[in-house]
Design a binder for these strands. Structure first.
Lengths: 122, 122, 122, 122
DNA sequence: GTGGTCTAGACCACA
DNA sequence: GTGGTCTAGACCACA
């Protein structure tokens, strides 16, 4: 059900939902499945899904209305957070170093970047 | 001395040495500092440095000659490991999703990739 | 219409009406809109507005005359409730700790207090 | 052990630790009790303490070194976050409205603010 | 129905 | 020893 790449379930699920938002298959205002429904579907404990939703909320990707549900936020790029961008830049540099080690060409990487921006990374 | 970003020390050190190799400040055949010297310099436990060198060796980035020391390998890109490339690709996609969320433009990312390939990411 | 800050709607509405009373835009004796009118105007469920009015009434801020409507009370500060004052004091201390953490100066806070007492906090 | 004011345990504990930091009884670099020790002392579940520490870390008040422990951060006011300051300001206005309702004088409030800044709110 | 909190307790990685 | 993850399952407030 989930990749066994060492990343915790809640992190994998955060990324999965973020990708759906970036790709547009989840639109602003859309309601996410309830914690219980998502947990049942993915064979996860409700606590794990709850943690996922709270993480997404802390990142302003979704918002929660108690008793109603969790919804995709309107605009997720309003406030530019330079600190977070720097962190992503740093992690990217580490990853690019790895890629160079494995012999991935610069052209291949540029294509991956282009692909990510034009069809949501899939 | 090391970032408190949650990543274990040995992992941060692996990345640091890999960057030096990719950048060329460490050349094939160059001798790495001894485990004790490196540990003293970085205020790390020798066990941590030892684990670092073992990790680098397991990835063919360096090789160890008993009694002589640890040296940078000749060519690190001879054997293409598709599995590892796929892993890097997957992690890149996650990172690109994050970047898009933060409003980083495709052009900015292309520049980061170019920079990484032309001056080692620094 | 209402902030999605996690606070339940009825609580936000209680605060909004209280502010209008403290500011003086709602005077003692003034009639509040009917539950149905208020609910329609704010796109809320009548039950939510009803709960709001009941809460305000339980705090002596308004009183209800059956068949006539809900009105702002004459004096809201007659009976000093030390227990509630202690609660507010405690919550204030928590908030002041937060403010200090964020680097808000004592002078800035004093100004905020002054402003709240001289123009209703707006 | 904890006040039964409705606030969740982890939130009360977050505030308690923040106050100790603002007051100076916890200094930058100080090690917090381990999750298990704190949980035992306060008769809480380790998960609840863990959530507390993670909240404090997400607010940069403490940092965690895996396997070593959780420590008070160096400077907690480096990056001014206007958004968070606005949120505190807003909550303060609500609280001041409550205080006015209860008949708390402006002078009394000014004294509370002064006290909070000169002896940590106690 | 919906999310939030909390306990009990297991298992894991890192130092 | 130390923090991190996860499950099972209970109870609560809000809509």
């Amino acid at each position: 059900m989930f990749a066994t790449n060492g990343a915790p379930y809640y992190e994998q699920l955060v990324m999965q939902i973020k990708q759906q938002i970036v790709q547009g298959s989840l639109q602003p205002g859309d309601k996410l499945p309830s914690i219980r429904a998502m947990a049942a579907e993915l064979h996860l404990n409700p606590n794990t899904v709850s943690k996922t939703y709270q993480l997404l909320e802390s990142q302003r990707a979704v918002y929660t209305v108690k008793g109603k549900g969790t919804f995709v936020s309107e605009s997720t790029t309003t406030t530019v957070n330079q600190g977070e961008i720097d962190t992503v830049h740093e992690r990217l540099q580490n990853l690019l170093t790895e890629a160079q080690f494995l012999g991935v060409t610069e052209q291949q990487l540029q294509e991956w970047v282009t692909a990510a921006y034009h069809n949501g990374g899939k």
